[in-house]
Design a protein around this nucleic acid. Structure first.
Lengths: 190, 190
DNA sequence: AGTAAAAGTCAACAGCCGATTACATAGAGC
DNA sequence: GCTCTATGTAATCGGCTGTTGACTTTTACT
């Protein structure tokens, strides 16, 4: 049960531990709810190292969370592929452990400090990629309706996840969602 | 531009002023971001009256916000009516002034104190009413997909509302959304 | 071995927050 | 007019937060 032998005086490794701990705490409590002391404790490092390595709490947030707020990796393939992948991924009643940047987004959107950063990032790395894979007319309207549906699903299944769901209902939900997404994604196809 | 002549020593009127101010501040900053001092200043009353009349900040939140978190009034009429009404209401790029309980919800969902109250209330006064107006099978799945879409739209148009939208795109969005909602709402009709 | 820089530690500051206690004032009923 | 109570005010407490400056320890290099 010894400590993991904290490799001696390695700045890079220390910064990594801080980032890992920050992701976990930001995920659980959002930006405002997270405290630098709690992050430091979880990382097993001294509080002041956060400011030394990242300048400020907000600087740490930018390094630990913002880069992972990106929808693009999920949008490869045909409209069919994308619709099924998103349905499978976002209708998920599984355990909520780990780190999810979109959960952090919803839990931090009201923050005076982190909110503006999140909105700008979402614009460039969620709505834009979504518009770029669409064919046909009304790209903005269609991309918006998809992104809002996904945002709502994050809220429902990854934040308000206490309400359990029957397996059959869950399967039906995935089917309905995939159909809904496909309708919008393929609206411009022949 | 005088003050509204604070009627002398009227407890009920004072409590009302506090509620009004609380709604405005909670709307703007969410539960954690709002401070009792700011609410008291806006209401033009002494800070301690909040605790006297409502017990605590959370008590004020329960009286000022929770009762307005109710989807039922919007669900009257035929599926056609409901779909068009929701599309018109939730795809709205208008000014974000006033008080909207669903905005408060999204901005407070991460709060350790207010979060649980909001989740319970949403379950009883949003998902339940939605399920009750549905005919046919898979009520939970369909009601969930509608509620998540609406939640996402709140986030997009009432919180991340800085991005303006072309009139044509907005009209198209309403049309698409109404179709989408109607498909789910009327899934059990003949 | 000696030195200088990097890495880590310690103590504390200044500010804000919700809540409480004790005190002052006005109004209603007799 | 007096008193009791409801209403409003002032001062402050204890706690938490992000951040900073001064100090100590380790590592790398000559």
């Amino acid at each position: 049960m010894d400590e993991p032998a904290k490799s001696p005086r390695n700045a890079e490794a220390t910064a990594d531990r801080i980032v890992l701990a920050a992701q976990k705490i930001f995920h659980q409590k959002g930006y405002d709810g997270a405290t630098t002391r709690e992050i430091a404790d979880l990382a097993g490092i001294n509080l002041t190292l956060i400011n030394r390595y990242f300048g400020s709490k907000l600087g740490l947030f930018e390094k630990a969370v913002l880069p992972h707020l990106d929808l693009e990796p999920l949008l490869k393939g045909t409209p069919d592929d994308v619709a099924k992948r998103l349905a499978e991924l976002y209708v998920d009643t599984g355990p909520k452990e780990g780190f999810d940047a979109f959960v952090v987004l919803v839990r931090s959107i009201a923050s005076k400090d982190a909110g503006p950063l999140l909105m700008a990032r979402l614009q460039d790395h969620a709505l834009e990629p979504l518009m770029n894979i669409l064919e046909g007319p009304n790209k903005l309207a269609r991309a918006t309706l998809i992104s809002t549906q996904l945002a709502g699903l994050v809220l429902r299944f990854r934040i308000m996840s206490q309400l359990l769901i029957d397996d059959h209902e869950q399967a039906e939900m995935k089917r309905l969602l995939a159909t809904q997404l496909h309708t919008i994604l393929a609206a411009g196809e022949d």
